[in-house]
Design a protein around this nucleic acid. Structure first.
Lengths: 142, 142
DNA sequence: ACTAAAGCCTAGTAATGCAATAGGAAATAG
DNA sequence: CTATTTCCTATTGCATTACTAGGCTTTAGT
């Protein structure tokens, strides 16, 4: 599995926040309820996004999370790479196996490199705004 | 990680067998030594390939493994799907999460579907013969 | 100042799947 | 008959994933 729940949840939450931008800061509790995700588990994920400055979190009453950039400035690729650690399709491309003794002669390495590029290029080409459902209530107009 | 050692080893072994087609049946021991893979672990992988009729195995003295088709009739995609079980990038596309209660409204589902198609289409377009190194010794000519 | 609402931080745990190992049974050629 | 080799079923150690627990800190409002 290339993308685990962590990455999937992260993406869904980012879309959720993009859809509710107009409402200002959104508390974790609200996101978790709307998305049907455990609050405690979401905490971990949101913490990662905040540390990377993709979100701004604020504590205390009236606190919550908000995007730090407009949705069209996030790519799905960067969100997933951050939360998953890596999107490499095989260990050979992922530090671990770096300098696998056979890499010079490996007949399959090119397949993995091409696949890696394919995946990353596609995901880097999808921005958050394209995933946002057209808001029915136009809640951000006036 | 989309592809684990099982799939990677399987692919390398298939290429190995394609390269040594001219030598007839190749015993596991020889493949394992050449590829630097544990014999016992390889057994499992080869058994899977035999059960799917991608290889023919024969026991006893003079036995070993051989491809059942010419290399250009294998795709990397089918080899990996068989040994990995699935190439789905997310659980949502993989039976498990089938009928996720949110799939109707999920804003990210299309991303996964596109990604899945991208991956499978690419890997189904690569055939085994394109991975075979040009044999220096022309060992299969007369 | 006090309190309730919220995020932040460090661990811990249960379950899963991956990678590899073990031991023996059955077949085949010479 | 024997050496060789595949076939089959189980088991083990390990790492990662998914999730939980508990307490601390910050903030807004009264």
């Amino acid at each position: 599995m290339l993308v685990s729940t962590k990455g999937r949840y992260a993406l869904r939450v980012m879309v959720d926040l993009a859809e509710h931008q107009a409402a200002g800061r959104i508390p974790l509790k609200e996101i978790a309820a709307r998305q049907g995700i455990s609050e405690k588990y979401l905490e971990n994920i949101l913490a990662t996004l905040v540390r990377a400055n993709m979100l701004s979190g604020m504590r205390g009453k009236g606190g919550g999370y908000v995007l730090t950039r407009p949705p069209e400035q996030y790519t799905v690729g960067e969100i997933l790479r951050l939360t998953e650690g890596s999107l490499a399709p095989v260990a050979c491309l992922d530090g671990d196996c770096k300098g696998c003794s056979r890499s010079d002669e490996c007949p399959t390495l090119d397949v993995w490199k091409n696949l890696d590029k394919l995946i990353n290029d596609y995901l880097d080409g999808v921005t958050l705004d394209t995933l946002v459902a057209p808001s029915e209530g136009y809640d951000y107009v006036i």
